[in-house]
């Protein structure tokens, strides 16, 4: 068998990138208008849409950049400091 330097598609190619986070985006679903802008602007694709069309953040991989909070037109996302644990 030839050793080929080929890498296969995998989630978490750089590990659990959620560990990188200093601030955590927290969605206030009472304010959310389901505009999907947070989903669209997330560079890491860690926001998925629930059956009801609400954005759900995958904290295992969210790096906490805060673009979603910045771009949310109704300020429904707040960046909360991660507590050491």
């Amino acid at each position: 068998m030839v050793e080929l330097p080929v890498a296969r598609p995998s989630v978490g190619a750089a590990g659990k990138t959620g560990n990188w986070r200093l601030f955590k985006p927290s969605i206030d679903y009472r304010k959310c208008i389901k505009c999907l802008l947070c989903w669209m602007y997330c560079p890491d694709g860690v926001i998925s849409l629930s059956g009801k069309g609400l954005p759900v953040i995958d904290y295992e991989y969210c790096k906490g950049c805060g673009i979603c909070a910045e771009e949310c037109p109704v300020k429904a996302i707040e960046m909360v400091k991660e507590v050491e644990g």
């Binding site: 190619a13 990138t17 990188w20 890491d44 906490g64 673009i67």
Partner: peptide, 19 residues
């Protein structure tokens, strides 16, 4: 909805090229 750039990649937080 399909993501072809998979999460947990090594881009810096807030990376414009990754987006």
């Amino acid at each position: 909805r399909e993501e072809y750039l998979l999460k947990g990649n090594a881009a810096c937080a807030g990376c414009g090229p990754a987006l």
